[in-house]
Amino acid sequence: MEDHAHVIVAFEDVSYSYRRKPVLTGLNWAVPAGITGLVGPNGAGKSTVLALLVGLREPRSGRITVADTRGGAGGRRVGYLPQRFSLVPSMRVRDTVAYAAWLNGLDRTAAGAAADRALALVDLVDRADAPVRTLSGGLRQRAGIAAAVAHEPEIVVLDEPTVGLDPGQRVRLRRVVERIGETRTVVLATHLVEDVANLCSTVSVLDEGELRFHGPLTELVAGAEVTAAALEEAYERLLGREDR
């Protein structure tokens, strides 16, 4: 297990199999405060790791611990935006976010106020009363993020939030994630190196259920300037070298 000063999430020897096929085997992973990017090729096990982290799935063996940085107060400590999610088209944006907060342990009144704060955070206040069906792809993702953070979790887990967005929407969404990362630990699964280069302080590379790299971005690019191109090159090299 790696030693980080402020480990927020720790996977200790975690294994998981799906229909008897091993997906993760003895994974040790320590997520520090800040924004951590989880990258890897399709089928690497990123979504499984996130599902384990948020409790949607349970490890076959090993332990996952989430540090309690605020003394167990409030609702659930993890907020989650899945890669694919459906919304109730007729529901208003504010109600969607408030319902998520209510499900996460806030009472009705607090959930309403929390929804307003979350919508402000993702710049969606002006669409609060709009039905979800009227939102574009980018706005829909922002509404999803608002639902994930409304109950003010310590850790926010975002699974491929920028997939399918146009460049402009992606930039705006990154700003939102950046803002969230200022006060919370964020785990961002993505296959877009650009996202990692622009947002993350730490990166974890997962491939075939194994952690190939975990550490600061500067370490991955071996001291070079952290750019998308440098990251991509380092990433390719890392996976290519390991594959051989």
Partner: peptide, 11 residues
């Protein structure tokens, strides 16, 4: 979006 919350202990 509610799947994780529904599984959560404080749901």
């Amino acid at each position: 979006l509610f799947a994780a919350a529904r599984l959560g202990g404080t749901g």
